[in-house]
Design a binder for these strands. Structure first.
Lengths: 236, 236
DNA sequence: ACCTGAACACCGTTCAAGT
DNA sequence: ACCTGAACACCGTTCAAGT
């Protein structure tokens, strides 16, 4: 569908001459798709305006007819990425379970797009309809369960903070907490690290599940709540 | 004390000629102090190797005799910044209170140094003795209260994730959640936002305190804050 | 309106030359 | 060992010129 300018009978690169093309080559959707292609194939460090232009077969300056800055391109990418977050549980499964699905998918999505986190954490959400609709779903879920209105936004923000922090943590090397030569000076921590290691569970996943459980319990109460979800819970 | 080469009888900038100076001008401590000076006066975007060199009165390339990269300089800054985190409560005040002081100071410190978060979240901690000592204090605090060893590290990581996420959130504009023109399509969320606003409390602070309370309750149990050991949690 | 190509003002980093 | 100064390979972004 992407109407790439086909080679004009030769074998050379399909170079365009200067001047306005008869039909526009670029638009927001194509730029976003190309950006995501680069990111998934070569990672965020490879996402430069030059690389993006190259992927699209245009010169870098052409991008500035559509985006006013690289930041804006990143916002488009974020909006697209948000579609991977699962907000479908609210109103359909017990609240605790809906929140759990939402939080897990949200964290998984941003673990794959960690460099977006510092951007989106500070970005006015008015520019992202998808994010706003997500907030509405969560707010409905809480409201239906009788939450006081003024407690809803802080709860969402608190969960989101935990989710973003956990997504960053998920990108850390497995041995990030290794104390190295200092181990002997830190007996309790070193022992705890070894004990965790011995469980064989991924440290980031374990921490996320423990924290999410704690947060949900603290926010919703410890009740029998949603019939405890699918994944395993940490051992006693 | 910093032995700046005095002007040699003239009024011009005290420029050094090439060649090894009789006593070294730079060291890790001075570089770190200069970096923090730039950050506190002009923010992280102003912290370039060129600006740092200028602040220290050397040429940019001189920095590479001491640091192998800008990343390394940022690690020195992080190590220094960690001294602002309060881990003194463990073993001296009730655990819940010690954790609360620790978390608050940790979040406040990194709210002032948000650009460090993506760096430190992924950095092997072996390079930061101060961070390791902090972990040991927290681990001791949990261990003393009877926590199972394998649960200690996940709890610390979960708290840290929430703290980092909250520190990022604390740097967001106050109206970041404003739905703008979409408000009418999001009645529940918009209402919740207005209700929160009406309380007059800062949204980031409110979310942090709510989340911290929830997390501590979920982790420690809802008890009178004292010696709840590990697992169970009382009423709804 | 929307493209090219040249140019700009930066970045972090390297390296020969100096003492 | 530790500095200077020139140079390199990038960045994102601007803008005149073209159609």
């Amino acid at each position: 569908m992407s109407v790439p300018p086909k080679a004009d009978g030769g074998t050379a690169v399909p170079r365009r001459r200067a001047g306005r093309p008869s039909n526009a080559v670029l638009d927001r959707a194509h730029i976003t798709t190309a950006a995501l292609g680069i990111v998934s194939e070569r990672g965020y460090p490879a996402l430069t305006m030059a690389a993006l232009a190259r992927q699209l077969g245009v010169s870098p300056s052409a991008l500035y007819n559509h985006a006013s800055s690289k930041q804006e391109v990143l916002q488009w990418v974020q909006e697209r990425v948000m579609s991977g977050v699962d907000s479908t549980g609210f109103g359909r499964v017990p609240l605790r379970e809906a929140l759990r699905r939402w939080a897990r998918s949200y964290r998984d999505v941003f673990a794959e797009h960690a460099p977006l986190i510092p951007v989106v954490a500070v970005l006015p959400v008015a520019g992202s309809p998808r994010t706003l609709r997500m907030y509405e779903s969560v707010a409905e879920g809480l409201s239906t369960e009788g939450w006081h209105p003024e407690r809803i936004v802080p709860a969402i923000v608190a969960l989101e903070s935990f989710i973003f922090g956990s997504a960053l943590d998920a990108t850390a090397p497995l041995d990030i907490l290794d104390p190295g030569q200092h181990a002997s000076a830190l007996p309790v921590f070193a022992g705890a690290l070894e004990a965790q290691r011995a469980t064989g569970a991924g440290p980031a996943d374990t921490a996320f599940e423990l924290g999410l459980d704690a947060l949900l319990t603290g926010l919703l109460g410890a009740g029998e709540a949603g019939q405890e979800s699918g994944r395993e819970s940490p051992p006693a």
